[in-house]
Amino acid sequence: MDRKKPLLGTVQETLLIPLYARAVETRKEQALLRDPRAEEIIASIDYDFARFDGLPSLTGALLRTLLFDRWVTDFLSAHPRGTVVEIGTGLNTRYERVDNGSARWIELDLPDVITLRRRFFTDTARQTMIASSVTDEAWAAEVTSRTDGPYLFLAEAVLPYLDEAAVHQVVNLLAARFPGSLLALDTAGPGFFDTQEQHDALSQVEARMRWYCPDVGTQLAHWRPGTETVTAHTLTSLPAPLLAQLPVPYQQMVSALAAQKLPQAEGYRLSLVRLPSDPPLLP
């Protein structure tokens, strides 16, 4: 097999962590999810994935992915012909897992990531890759020229790697160009943010988070009045229906972790927010 090294920037390299998590999980008898494509991709990339073997945060990445998948499924149930925009799509396979056969999908990431992604995926009539920084307004115009709303934006393991000014810029852009849309995002708290050097996965790469937010609902509403939190969770307070579907060993693990009330775990939040319906003026 012709294995090639991934030519990725420092932050972009982190996309390999959840990819490996899905590949490893697929081989387990009691798996949180199965992703054969992730296994295929891992086998064709020349990279030292062994550095991530056995890391607890791989499970955290999988639980986050399951929650984001559920939010997409709920959105498409309500809006079968809506548009899902994955910000920082990486080598995600969410389209393959939860597409409903009629929605539009936009997969956005930096040019080096999209170059890598095109080795494994191709555009279709309903699925389009866009090479752009999320802070570049041009991609939003391309999305509106290709698709109709309503929109669900997914920023999974993306915004914490931007500085606060850039995150503010992204929120401004989404609120102005896609009023009333849903945005799913994850945010780190100060306990998580301050211990990155000791984090099991981040300590294996050079990338570091640059933005933390103890209360994303309050922060986004401050930036864009009218923003509402639809739901918010930690990895230890997942929705009951989702938790009930996990294999029993994982249910027990989440329960045990919840009992410990670790600041790093409790400060890491997964939020679904609705942007204001009336587009405000960009500052």
Rank of each mutant, 00 (worst) to 15 (best):
T187S: 13
A38I: 01
N92V: 05
P239C: 15
T122L: 14
E156T: 03
A61M: 08
G9D: 07
K28Y: 08
E164C: 03
R22Y: 01
E228F: 00
A43Y: 00
L246I: 03
K5S: 15
K5D: 14
N92F: 00
L91H: 03
L238D: 05
V134E: 03
Y151I: 11
T128V: 11
R119K: 04
V205I: 14
R34H: 10
R37V: 09
L66R: 12
H168S: 03
P111V: 12
D163E: 08
S77V: 08
Q260N: 07
A258H: 13
Y268R: 07
E25Q: 07
V205D: 00
S102H: 04
E96R: 02
F68T: 06
E142N: 11
G217D: 05
P190Y: 02
T59C: 12
P6Q: 12
D74E: 15
K4Y: 07
L270A: 08
A50F: 07
R97C: 13
L152V: 05
D53K: 10
R274A: 14
L243R: 12
H79L: 09
L242N: 10
Q30C: 11
E197P: 00
L182R: 06
K261A: 15
G226A: 11
T26H: 05
H233Q: 13
I114G: 10
A138H: 09
R210Y: 00
E29N: 15
E86G: 11
A23W: 00
T26F: 00
D35Q: 02
L174M: 06
A240N: 03
E40W: 04
L154K: 03
V171S: 01
G90Q: 06
A184D: 04
G149E: 06
D215R: 07
M253F: 07
M1Q: 12
H168W: 02
D194S: 07
T195H: 06
L174E: 05
D2N: 14
D112N: 12
L246K: 04
I17D: 06
E25Y: 02
I87V: 15
P241Y: 08
Y47Q: 13
L32W: 03
S44Y: 02
Q204I: 04
A61T: 02
R224W: 05
Q260F: 10
A166F: 02
T14Q: 05
V230Y: 01
R97V: 15
Q127E: 13
L182V: 04
R118Q: 11
L242E: 14
A175R: 01
P150D: 10
Q196P: 01
A240Q: 08
A131Y: 03
R27Q: 12
A61L: 06
A221L: 09
D53W: 04
G217K: 03
Q196C: 03
V248L: 14
G9L: 06
E86D: 13
R126L: 06
V24Y: 04
A207P: 00
M253A: 13
M129A: 15
D46F: 02
P18Q: 07
L7A: 14
G54H: 01
D74K: 09
L185C: 10
R64S: 05
P6I: 10
T234I: 01
P6L: 08
L7M: 10
R64M: 05
A256Y: 01
P283Y: 09
M129Y: 09
L63E: 02
S44K: 13
A256E: 13
A50L: 12
